[in-house]
Design a protein around this nucleic acid. Structure first.
Lengths: 299, 299
DNA sequence: ATTTTGTTTTTTATCTACAATAAACATTTT
DNA sequence: AAAATGTTTATTGTAGATAAAAAACAAAAT
């Protein structure tokens, strides 16, 4: 088959789950906009909802006849986009213990193991290569460079340059900027998490990501934004795999964030730089400690 | 056809051009290593040289019978890799005056105009997207963001962060490091160009690229290196297109480079930072002046 | 006149096939 | 035995085909 209709299935599930009996549904363009898909896909969803007897559909009239059950939804394996499937599968593979730096990556083998065509795997690898974890020799194979100490240090250096820049920009925002309100809201979230730290310390990585993203958005720089996207994905899988979310470390990080937030709100550039550096310093330590102990890149 | 044998043709031309009558050629693995291709390709080259009567080949014995003429070589259109063809064609297109920011990019149309398959164009666009000049909406088209003022400013900001970092690292290299010798050699090249500036000012951009590359290599950071690759490619086409290589501007840049080199050689971090900032400041002005005057990114 | 629905066309995402190239294996030569 | 050549196999790079999804166009309804 040429293409899976995962966009349709995923959107169908999303829409069906939100339906309430006896309500009338809006126009097709509106549904499409709500779901973030084209009208063609929205119509396909309506068609199926109608066929399944979930709605009665006649031109503008779209009435919900019954609440969809779990059985009406598509199973989750069928709703993941191919890109996500490949990403997950690949990340698990390269974070696994037996994935030594220097290892060759075989497109066809990967494709077969994931159960997909080679083109999609190739495209994924090309996209993924910007994260600096793999490298290609032209007309030959990809090589796994790996999550090594060198990688972590290079990443940390760039992160520090970028975040100091973004934090300084943030400090120059007008006080009534939306980002300042978001920052205040985020302080409350930090405080709430701190109050219940023993239960919630594992949720910190998500909050951490959102916090840094908020700061980076202030720089309005596409290269910084792209780099942070890359970091976020790498960390997402890395921490999911290495479940070393120590309570103490996260608690300390929350305190650093709170200092950092206070500095950003003060608008005092020297204070911002100080708080930012302090946090980045310990974030670097955390990153280095989370490395697989053996891996050291070969020349 | 599935794939053009451009690797073979390009390597054949390279090897044939270097042949001298009556010399004996080395072993197959050695030829392959010299040319940077596999032995299979090296053998294909020997086979053709033999068929064309350019060499006499019998197992280990490979004697050059005659000097190849221009007619023996493959025409240059056949030796360019598909990636290079697409890159050239695409860059010309997006730097052309009628390529307005916001324009949609159509894969199939591009492929047809270049005379290639869609897969190659897709892969090219994915790779190219890291330069920040195009952006994709999933399941929909690519959009040209364009060589705008915003792009130039964002690029300049990151370049400054990275180059200050790299220059500082360079200043920490031991004096007997190869890079220091390279730097001294490069000073001589700058002086030579300056002595004949009226004739040679157009060659500056190549020297400029090599100079900054040398500095960036000192940082040994893959993200910085990748970013500089991206810059170099974008500038390469941009300056080729906008032939605004003013003599005065380049002469001034050479002087700045010479100051910068002196600072790097001194190892004095404060002096390095000062010279680096001075040069980056005027490089930023040059970049902004080279922009197409109309282009301002739409929201 | 604008919005909504119905229908058709365009474009993307993905698979498969196959030539070029690299890499591996086997044999011969020094 | 080591290195070179001869031969076979594996892998990549690219084209072409097709279903899904988006976008454009046309007709109808408010």
């Amino acid at each position: 088959m040429a293409r899976q209709n995962t966009v349709f299935k995923e959107a169908y599930n999303r829409y069906a789950a939100a339906l309430r009996t006896d309500t009338a549904l809006p126009s097709e363009p509106e549904i499409a906009a709500q779901l973030g898909v084209s009208r063609s896909t929205a119509r396909a969803i309506l068609t199926r909802l109608s066929e399944e007897g979930i709605i009665r559909w006649n031109k503008r009239q779209k009435i919900v006849l019954r609440q969809p059950t779990d059985g009406d939804l598509f199973p989750s394996e069928e709703t993941d986009s191919l890109h996500d499937i490949i990403e997950r599968s690949f990340m698990q593979r390269i974070l696994a213990d037996d994935a030594a730096p220097g290892m060759q990556i075989n497109e066809l083998e990967l494709a077969r193991e994931i159960g997909t065509g080679t083109t999609s795997v190739r495209e994924f690898l090309i996209r993924f290569s910007r994260f600096g974890l793999i490298e290609k020799r032209p007309n030959s194979h990809w090589t796994l460079k790996g999550f090594t100490r060198e990688f972590a240090l290079e990443l940390a250096d760039v992160r520090e340059m970028f975040e100091l820049h973004s934090a300084a920009e943030f400090g120059r925002l007008p006080r009534d900027h939306q980002a300042c309100a978001d920052l205040a809201a985020m302080r409350e979230e930090h405080l709430a998490m701190l109050a219940d730290i023993n239960q919630r310390f594992k949720d910190f990585s998500v909050l951490d990501e959102r916090f840094h993203l908020l700061i980076h958005r202030a720089s309005k720089n596409r290269f910084i934004a792209d780099f942070y996207d890359a970091i976020a994905i790498v960390f997402h899988y890395h921490y999911q795999w290495n479940k070393t979310a120590a309570r103490e470390r996260n608690e300390r990080a929350i305190h650093e964030h709170l200092d950092y937030i206070a500095a950003l709100e003060s608008g005092d550039q020297a204070a911002i730089e100080k708080a930012c550096r302090a946090h980045l310093h310990s974030a670097r330590q955390t990153l280095l400690q989370s490395l697989p102990q053996i891996a050291t890149e070969s020349a």
